[in-house]
C-alpha cells in the first residue's frame, strides 16, 4: 500500500462563529483523481481553501507528502507542490493570457522547464495559444476556465485542487474540460482533487469519491461503487427506476441519515 500524497485528518474550519467543516478526514493516493461531491453549502470549497492555506482550520492536520502544511500562507503551500484552481476561475483580467500563464510559474527559475510546461499547457489548450496576447478578462467563460487550469499546471504541481471546473459552462465544454483533466492525470501522473456539483461527470473520471453534507463526510467509496449506490443515483445523479414513481415515498430519507 502506497503512502497517500495528501492526508487530511479531522479538520474543523469556521467562518467566524459558523462551523463550515465539522471534522473531515480524507486521503488521496498519488496519481489518482479523487472527487468530493456535495450540495451548495456542504463545505466543499472551504475544504479546498483549508488545504491550500487560504483558510486556517481550528483543529486537525493537513499532511502533504508526509509534512504538515495546515495554517501556512497559500504561497508556501503552493511552493510545496499544491496548485489551486479556484472556483469561478479568478484569472488576472488585465494581464494577457501569456502573462497569466507565466504568473503560474512565478515560483520557478528553470527556464527550460517553464518553456516545456508552457508548450505542454498550450498543447492541451490550443485556444490559449491563439489568444496569447489578449487580456484574460476578454476571454469567454470556457476559455477563462482553461486558462485557470493551464495557469495552475505551469508550476508543475504534484497535486491540483480543482474547484468546480464545470461552473457556468455548456455541457459540451464541460465534456471537453473533463476529458482534458483526465488526460492530464493519465499523461502527467498529476494527482487531482476535484470538487464538483456535477456528480455524473465527476464520478465518470474519478477513481475514488467522498460525499459531503453540512461539513461532514457521509459516504466514501470507489467511484465505480458510488455510481451504483441508490442514494447517489437519486440525490446526486437524478436517476430513478422507470415506473417507480407510484411506489416512491415522498421525503424519502437518505440511508446515511
Amino acid at each position: 500500500m502506497t503512502e497517500p500524497i495528501l492526508r487530511v485528518s479531522n479538520i474543523e474550519t469556521y467562518y467566524g462563529p459558523i462551523m463550515a467543516i465539522r471534522g473531515i478526514s480524507l486521503h488521496i493516493d498519488p496519481g489518482k483523481i479523487v472527487t468530493v461531491l456535495g450540495a451548495n453549502g456542504a463545505g466543499k470549497t472551504t475544504l479546498l481553501k483549508t488545504i491550500s492555506g487560504a483558510m486556517d482550520p481550528q483543529k486537525g492536520t493537513v499532511e502533504f507528502e508526509g509534512r504538515e502544511i495546515q495554517k501556512q500562507d497559500p504561497d508556501r503551500v503552493m511552493r510545496a507542490g499544491i496548485s489551486h484552481v479556484p472556483e469561478g476561475r479568478e484569472v488576472f483580467p488585465f494581464l494577457t493570457v501569456h502573462e497569466n500563464l507565466m504568473m503560474g510559474a512565478f515560483t520557478r527559475r528553470d527556464r527550460e522547464g517553464i518553456q516545456r510546461d508552457l508548450e505542454l499547457v498550450l498543447g492541451y489548450f490550443p485556444v490559449l495559444e491563439a489568444r496569447s496576447k489578449q487580456q484574460a478578462g476578454q476571454l469567454s467563460g470556457g476559455e477563462q476556465q482553461m486558462l485557470a487550469i493551464g495557469r495552475a499546471l505551469m508550476s508543475h504541481p504534484r497535486l491540483v485542487l480543482l474547484d468546480e471546473p464545470s461552473l457556468g459552462l455548456s455541457p459540451i465544454l464541460v465534456n471537453d474540460i473533463f476529458g482534458i483533466i483526465e488526460r492530464i492525470n493519465r499523461e502527467q501522473g498529476t494527482t487531482i482533487l476535484l470538487v464538483e456539483q456535477n456528480a455524473h461527470m465527476a464520478l465518470s473520471i474519478a477513481d475514488y469519491g467522498y460525499v459531503l453534507e453540512v461539513g461532514r463526510v457521509v459516504m466514501e467509496d470507489t467511484a465505480e461503487r458510488l455510481r451504483d449506490k441508490e442514494d447517489i443515483k437519486e440525490f446526486y445523479l437524478g436517476m430513478k427506476d422507470a415506473g417507480s414513481r407510484g411506489k416512491r415515498r415522498w421525503k424519502r430519507v437518505k440511508t446515511w441519515r
Partner: peptide, 15 residues
C-alpha cells in the same frame, strides 16, 4: 499587477 487585480489568485500562484 497580478496581486492588485486578484489577491487570492496571486496567493495561489505562490506570490
Amino acid at each position: 499587477q497580478a496581486t492588485s487585480q486578484n489577491q487570492l489568485a496571486a496567493y495561489y500562484m505562490g506570490i
